[in-house]
């Protein structure tokens, strides 16, 4: 796929990182404000989609932290693992644990919830991007015939 517009081709790489940052922010604030892993994952998919449309499938694939399918599986595993600490602590599986870390200026709250939401994020991002990338080149082929 060749870029159709110089402007878009130039704008997309920084836009990608900007959208990913937004996605991360949505993911992190999700527990208290509107947001969360699912919505954050969708924004990340939009970012990957933008790259794939403008710069091509390979470029989008390259910019992912892991190959999409792997990312999806990792996400499910991560969410599943997030339930283990609670189970090991003698509580029902997927009971979340919380730790407060005092940073001096504010207390940072760490929890297995974060891990779980990160898993949801990765699963959504990986799965939908994989679907997207699998559909796009076919469209390109159709164009060639």
């Amino acid at each position: 796929m060749t870029p159709r517009s110089i402007l878009l081709a130039r704008a997309v790489p920084p836009l990608y990182w900007l959208m990913l940052a937004a996605a991360a922010w949505i993911l992190l604030r999700g527990h208290n404000e509107p947001g969360g892993g699912f919505i954050g994952g969708l924004v990340a998919v939009a970012a990957s989609a933008a790259v794939a449309i403008v710069l091509g499938e390979a470029a989008a694939r390259r910019r992912m932290p892991r190959p999409p399918l792997e990312l999806a599986v990792l996400g499910v595993l991560l969410a599943g693992l997030a339930g283990l600490p609670g189970a090991l602590a003698g509580q029902p599986y997927l009971t979340h644990l919380w730790w407060g870390v005092d940073l001096g200026i504010a207390e940072l709250k760490l929890s297995t919830v974060m891990l779980f939401d990160l898993g949801v994020f990765c699963a959504v991002w990986g799965t939908l991007t994989a679907y997207l990338l699998a559909l796009l080149p076919e469209a390109a082929k159709e164009e060639g015939t």
Partner: peptide, 14 residues
């Protein structure tokens, strides 16, 4: 109980 003000997200993740 779940340390979150966003009820929707708390339901989803907890």
């Amino acid at each position: 109980e779940a340390h979150g003000r966003n009820v929707v997200n708390v339901i989803i993740v907890d």
